[in-house]
C-alpha cells in the first residue's frame, strides 16, 4: 500500500511538473527561455512515458522531443535574431501584449468548458479496456519479432510506417523548396572542446544506433529510436562545421533519403502480388524482412532528420561562397 502512495505522489508531481513547465514555456516573455523550458518539458515527458510503461516511446521522446526539436528551435531562433537585428531591436522577444481582447475573454470562457467536458469524458471511461493488446499478443508469434511495439510498427500496421516515412520525405522537400532563409554569417570555427566531443562521440552513437536497431526485435528500441540517434550524430557533425555542401545535392544522400520508403514500397508491392494483401509479411520470413525494413528506415530517418536540421541553408551557401 505504501508503494502505491509513493507512486501516486510521484505521478502527481510529474503531472504538475509537466503542466507547470508547459505553462511557463508558453507564457514566459523570453523566447530563448521558452525553448529551454520546452526541452525540459520534453525530458519530463520521457519520464512520463516510462511511468506509463511505454519505454519505446520514452526512447523516441528523449532523442527527438528533448534533443532534436530543441536543436531545431535554437537554430531557428538564432536565425530569427539575425533577421530582426537588421530591423528593430525586438530581437527574440515578442511585442508588448495588447491587454486582454474580447476574443480572449470568449476563449477564457469556452476553453475551461471544453477542458471540463474532455475531463468528464475521460473520467467516465471504464478503468479496464484491453484495446487491441490481446489481438497483438495472440498474433505476436507470427510477426517475426517479440517486441509488440515493433510488431505493430513494422508488421501489423506497416502501412502507417510507410506513410510516415513519406511524410518525413515531404517535410524535407518542403524545407528544401522553401530554399534559403538568411545569409549565414562567416562561420566561426567550432570550439575545440565541442569538436573533440563530437569526434569521440560519433562512433559511439553509431554503435548505439545499431544496438537500438538490433534490440528493437525483442525489447524497447527500433528503427525510429536508432534513426534519431543517427540524426543526433549528424547534427553534431554539422555543428562542428562538417557541412556536406556539395554532397548535399549529390546522389548518395538522396539515395539514402529514399532508401527506407523505397524498400517499404517494394516489399508492399511484392506482398501485394504474392500474399494478395498490402505489407502482409509471410511469417516464416517476417523476422528477416523486418530487419531489412528497419535498417533502411533507420538510415532514411537519420538522414532526413539531419537534413531537416541543415534546413534551407543550402541556397545561402551557394549564394555567398
Amino acid at each position: 500500500m505504501e508503494t502505491m502512495m509513493v507512486a501516486w505522489m510521484l505521478d502527481s508531481l510529474l503531472g504538475l511538473g509537466l503542466l507547470w513547465l508547459a505553462w511557463r514555456c508558453l507564457a514566459c516573455p523570453n523566447l530563448f527561455k521558452a525553448i529551454v523550458l520546452f526541452v525540459a518539458f520534453g525530458l519530463l515527458m520521457a519520464l512520463a512515458w516510462v511511468r506509463l510503461e511505454a519505454p519505446d516511446v520514452a526512447l523516441a521522446e528523449a532523442a527527438i522531443g528533448a534533443g532534436l526539436t530543441g536543436a531545431l528551435l535554437m537554430v531557428a531562433l538564432a536565425q530569427l535574431q539575425s533577421i530582426e537585428t537588421n530591423g528593430d531591436a525586438a530581437g527574440a522577444t515578442e511585442k508588448e501584449e495588447r491587454g486582454i481582447r474580447p476574443l480572449q475573454w470568449l476563449l477564457l470562457i469556452v476553453l475551461p468548458l471544453i477542458a471540463t467536458g474532455l475531463g468528464y469524458i475521460i473520467l467516465s471511461f471504464p478503468p479496464d479496456a484491453p484495446g487491441l493488446s490481446t489481438a497483438v499478443a495472440t498474433h505476436l508469434e507470427a510477426s517475426g519479432v517479440s517486441n509488440p511495439v515493433t510488431a505493430v510498427l513494422l508488421n501489423f500496421r506497416g502501412y502507417d510506417t510507410l506513410l510516415e516515412l513519406i511524410v518525413l520525405l515531404l517535410a524535407l522537400l518542403g524545407v528544401w523548396s522553401l530554399g534559403g532563409t538568411v545569409p549565414q554569417q562567416a562561420a566561426t570555427p567550432a570550439p575545440l572542446v565541442l569538436e573533440t566531443l563530437t569526434r569521440l562521440l560519433v562512433p559511439v552513437l553509431i554503435l548505439t544506433a545499431a544496438y537500438l536497431l538490433w534490440v528493437g526485435a525483442h525489447a524497447p528500441g527500433g528503427a525510429f529510436q536508432a534513426g534519431s540517434v543517427l540524426a543526433a550524430a549528424g547534427v553534431l557533425l554539422l555543428l562542428i562545421g562538417r557541412h556536406p555542401r556539395a554532397a548535399l545535392m549529390a546522389l548518395p544522400l538522396r539515395l539514402i533519403l529514399v532508401l527506407g520508403p523505397a524498400t517499404f514500397l517494394v516489399i508492399a508491392v511484392v506482398t501485394m502480388l504474392i500474399e494478395d494483401a498490402l505489407l502482409k509479411l509471410p511469417p516464416e520470413h517476417a523476422g528477416k524482412l523486418i530487419l531489412l525494413l528497419e535498417t533502411t528506415a533507420m538510415l532514411s530517418i537519420g538522414a532526413t532528420l539531419a537534413a531537416l536540421f541543415l534546413g534551407g541553408r543550402r541556397h545561402t551557401d551557394k549564394e555567398h561562397s
Binding site: 570550439p191 572542446v193 565541442l194 566531443l197
Partner: peptide, 16 residues
C-alpha cells in the same frame, strides 16, 4: 564515462 565526458564538455561550452 559518457556522462562524465559530456558533462565536462558541456560545462565548458556553457561557461565559454
Amino acid at each position: 564515462l559518457l556522462v562524465m565526458l559530456a558533462g565536462a564538455s558541456v560545462a565548458h561550452l556553457v561557461a565559454r
